[in-house]
Design a binder for these strands. Structure first.
Lengths: 335, 335
DNA sequence: ATGAAAGCGCTAACAA
DNA sequence: TTGTTAGCGCTTTCAT
C-alpha cells in the first residue's frame, strides 16, 4: 500500500497525501480531514525507507559496544537508545568484541546503512579508532579520542579514584593496596592517578608493591590478594577498581582466615546490582550509566545539527556509597 | 558517490557496476576487474537504503525486549544480534518497557522501517500481543503465544522447577518453601508446576502456605521469608525462582540469626554472574541464554524463507549447578 | 556481455 | 490550496 493508493481512495493527488503526513501547512482543513480518515481507514503507514531515499536522511545512529551484556554497557546503551528515540532518531546497536567486527560494522552501519552518527563505547583506544570515517560525527563513551577530534562523555575517574582512596584514608588506613583494572583502559589509569593523588595529599609515599593489575574479573581480584601477601605486602585496606574484583578479594581474604572489614577493609567501584547483598555489603562508587547514555545521545544529535560547534567533553560525577565492607582502621597486635 | 560515478570512471554503464557488486555471472572478467579496481580506488560503498528500495527487502529484523539491562535479556539479545548478522540480517533492538512503547515500536519498526520479522522477548502475555501485525513472522522468547500461531523458544521451566525441588528432596528436605516470581509470567507458573510435580512424586502434600509470590527482586525474597515465618510456616529449605530472591532470602535467614545452609538450604535460579561469589555460593539452575538468542534468530530467519513451514517450539534444557547454599537435611532439636 | 529504460515509494521544486 | 514533474540510488526487465 502506497501513498498513491491512499490518494486515489481519497480523491486527491499523492502529493497532497504527502503533505498531510508531513504536517505541511498548505493543506485545506477539509482535505486534510478526508485524507487522514482514509489513512486510518486503510491502515496506511508511510514507508520510512522510501522517505530516507527521497530526503537523503536516515535518522539512524549507530552504537558500537564491546558487548551488550556487561551491565555498565547495557545501561548506557539502553539510555542512549531511549533518548535517541525520544529525539526522533533510531539507534542501531551492535556488539563489536574485536577489531575485525568493529571494522566490518563501521562499514555496514555507516557506509552501507548510512547511519548519520556513531556512538563508540570503548574502554580503551586502539587501532580500531583509526578506521573511523571522518566527516561522520562520532561521540566516545569511556575513552577519549586521541586527538580530541570528537566529543566524549566520561565519568570523572580520577576523582573517583581519589574519593575511594580518601574514604579509606579517613578511616585511618595508611597502607592501602590497589587492584587496578586492565591498564590498557583509560579508566584504570585515571583511577590510579586519583589513588596517588589522595595518598600524596595525605603525605603517604606511593608504593609500587601495593599496586597490582587485575582484569576486572572476580578471579583476578582473588589472585591479586594472594599475590600481594605472597610478596609480603602489608596493608589494612584494599581499593579494587570494580566490584567484581572487590568481591574476589573479599573471598580471598576470608579464605585466608581473616575478616572483612575487621581485619581488612575493601572498597569496590561501580555499585553493581546486588552490591548491597554481598556479605559484607560493598562500599563502592556509584556511576550513573544512564546519564552517560543519555548525554552521549544528546551530544551526538547536537553534533548532527551543529557540525562545527565546539567539541564538548562531558565529565559526570561519581558518588561514594558507604556500606559495610569498610571500617575504621584498628591497630593490630603482633609484629 | 553513486553507482554512476563509478560507472563513469570505469567507462561502463551503471548497470555493469550493479552486476559487479551483485556478483552477477554475466560480466566479462576484464570488465569486472576494472570495475572492482575503480570501486576500491574510489572507496565506493553501495547505498543499502537504495538497495532496499529497489529490491523491496530490508534484511532488517526487529527485537523488542522489556529492557536491555537485565542480564538474561542482554544475553539473549547479544546472541540473537550476532547470529542475525551472521546470517545476513541486521537486528534492530529496542526496549519496550510498557504497552505504549511496545505498540509505538511495532509501528515504527515493522510498519515504517519495514523490518521483516520480529523477535519478542516477553515474560508474559498481555494485551500487547494482540497488536502484533499478522503476516509478519514473529518468534517469541519466553512466553508462548496464545494461539500457538508463532514459533517460540523457551527453556524447559517445568523441568527446571522439578529439578530444583528434586535436588532439595534428595538432600532429605521434606518441608520446602517456594518463592515464585511474578505469577503473571509464564515461567513462574511452569516452575511452580515442576515444584508440585516433584513433591507429588515424593509423596509430599502440596502446601499453599509454603508458596509465596515475589517480584524477582532481592527485597521480595527477603520479605517472603519474613512473611513465611510470621505465618508460622515450617521449612528446612527454600526454592527461590531466581538468584536475586534467593540472595534476599539468605539475607533474611541470616538476619534472623540462622545459617545457610546449616539451618536452611536455599536454591536459586538463573546462575547469575557472581552467583558463586555470594556467601554461601549459590546452588542454582543455569540457563543457556545465548543458545536461546541464537535459536530464536535462526527460527525467525527460517520462517522468513519458509513462511508455511510448521511452527517450531524449541525447548532448551536447564542445568543444575550445585554449590554451597544447599546441604543435607539435619533433624533439629527442640519441639 | 553490455546498455537503456522503467520503477521501488517517497519528497522537493515548480506550475497551476 | 492543489497537482505535475523530477529525481533519491539502486535493481530488474528487456533490448542489443
Amino acid at each position: 500500500m502506497t501513498i498513491r493508493d491512499v490518494a486515489a481512495r481519497a480523491g486527491v493527488s499523492h502529493q497532497t497525501v504527502s503533505r498531510v503526513i508531513n504536517n505541511s501547512e498548505r493543506v485545506n482543513d477539509d482535505t486534510r480531514a478526508r485524507v487522514e480518515a482514509t489513512i486510518t481507514e486503510m491502515g496506511y503507514r508511510p514507508n520510512a525507507i522510501a522517505r530516507f531515499m527521497a530526503r537523503g536522511r536516515t535518522y539512524n545512529l549507530a552504537c558500537l559496544s564491546p558487548n551488550l551484556t556487561d551491565f555498565t554497557y547495557a545501561n548506557i546503551i539502553e539510555a542512549a537508545e531511549t533518548e535517541a528515540r525520544r529525539l526522533g532518531y533510531f539507534l542501531l546497536i551492535a556488539s563489536a568484541p574485536d577489531e575485525n567486527s568493529f571494522t566490518t560494522l563501521i562499514d555496514q552501519l555507516l557506509l552501507s546503512r548510512r547511519a548519520e552518527g556513531l556512538l563508540v563505547i570503548s574502554p580503551f583506544l586502539d587501532a580500531r579508532h583509526e578506521r573511523l570515517p571522518r566527516n561522520i560525527p562520532v561521540v566516545f563513551v569511556g575513552a577519549e579520542p586521541q586527538q580530541g577530534r570528537a566529543p566524549s562523555v566520561r565519568l570523572d575517574e580520577t576523582k573517583g579514584g581519589y574519593m575511594a582512596t580518601r574514604h579509606l584514608l579517613e578511616l585511618g588506613h595508611r597502607q592501602i593496596a590497589h587492584v587496578t583494572g586492565l591498564m590498557i583502559e583509560d579508566c584504570s589509569r585515571f583511577r590510579l592517578v586519583g589513588y596517588r593523588e589522595a595518598l600524596k595529599e595525605a603525605g603517604i609515599d606511593f608504593e609500587t608493591s601495593l599496586v597490582i593489575e587485575g582484569d576486572w574479573s572476580a578471579t583476578s581480584g582473588y589472585k591479586a590478594v594472594q599475590q600481594l601477601w605472597q610478596q609480603g605486602a602489608q596493608f589494612s585496606a584494599i581499593f579494587a577498581q570494580n566490584d567484581r574484583m572487590a568481591v574476589g578479594a573479599i573471598r580471598a581474604i576470608r579464605d585466608a582466615g581473616k575478616q572483612v572489614p575487621c581485619d581488612i577493609s575493601v572498597i569496590g567501584y561501580d555499585d553493581m546490582p546486588l552490591a548491597s547483598y554481598f556479605d559484607p555489603s560493598l562500599t563502592t562508587l556509584r556511576q550513573d550509566m544512564s546519564a552517560i547514555g543519555r548525554q552521549a545521545a544528546q551530544l551526538l544529535i547536537d553534533r548532527l545539527a551543529n557540525p562545527r560547534s565546539p567539541l564538548k567533553h562531558v565529565r559526570l560525577p561519581v558518588q561514594l556509597v558507604v556500606r559495610t565492607s569498610t571500617a575504621p582502621y584498628v591497630m593490630k597486635g603482633g609484629s
